[in-house]
Amino acid sequence: MLEPAAIDTVGLSKTYGGKVHALVGLDLRVERGEVFGYLGPNGAGKSTTIRLLLGLIHPTAGRASVFGLDTRTNGVRARGHLGYLPGDLRLSDRLTGREQLESLASLRGSVDRALRDELCARLGVVLERPIRQLSRGNRQKIGLVQAFMHRPELVVLDEPTAGLDPLLQNEVRALLRETAAEGRTIFLSSHSLDEVQHVADRVGIIRAGRLVDVDAVESLRERALRHVTITFAEPADPSQFAGLDGVRVVSTDGAVLRLSAPEPAMDGVVKAAARYRIVDLVSQPADLEEIFLELYREGDDGG
């Protein structure tokens, strides 16, 4: 029999109060060992999906399973495989970081203490001060430690790097990559493709409760347009380039020509340019953010 996927949802839907369709018919499979980025604008339904996976809320229709365990009927065992960082983390304010982690460890039952201490050292967790005195980022670190400290098979993170400084964001990304290298699975939500493109294998883009695209980060990159800037010795005829498939002339400024072109059209662009004397040629991959925005806009047309 096929090994069950880390996450498998079929027609998963959630409607709040009979009218807010926060999630509509989500079919998603995340394989073991994968890092999956779950992207969408505010209110898209990311946290709703995650809270369904954890059994914190119940689906209106469809089902979700984690390693083959239905989150509704087998929630306790499913959660045994999970580590979770809530999007809006609330800890016990009066406890110190150490007491909070100790309490969560007892609640979990089994925790790898050596791993916990290592994580605390690595993220620089403030352990001895009451949590209410900690900054947002320092609370977030405690949340991250508790999500990883029992070496879960699947880590679900709702906007994990919110509130962290760039150095720590890097540290967290490194942690995510190492976790995936051990064959464990990561599902993380974010607003920004930029934030996940360096760690995720695949991304899903959700908008207004519907999954609008699932793709490997690599192929998203390929779809990305290049920004090409060619400086000629003397002005060239832009129509030679505009005729190429997928190429758009952005501007001509004397001898400087700006184009946007998909990867497959690059060969034609260079060959057309080669007919002239070239002073300089710069090609930059468009930020993935642009594709992302493009997809958001497409979604807008649809609904």
Binding site: L56, R79, L107
Partner: peptide, 14 residues
């Protein structure tokens, strides 16, 4: 109300 059950109930307990 304070949002603190979220983390607790995400743990493997009924």
């Amino acid at each position: 109300d304070a949002g603190r059950l979220e983390l607790v109930l995400s743990y493997p307990l009924r």
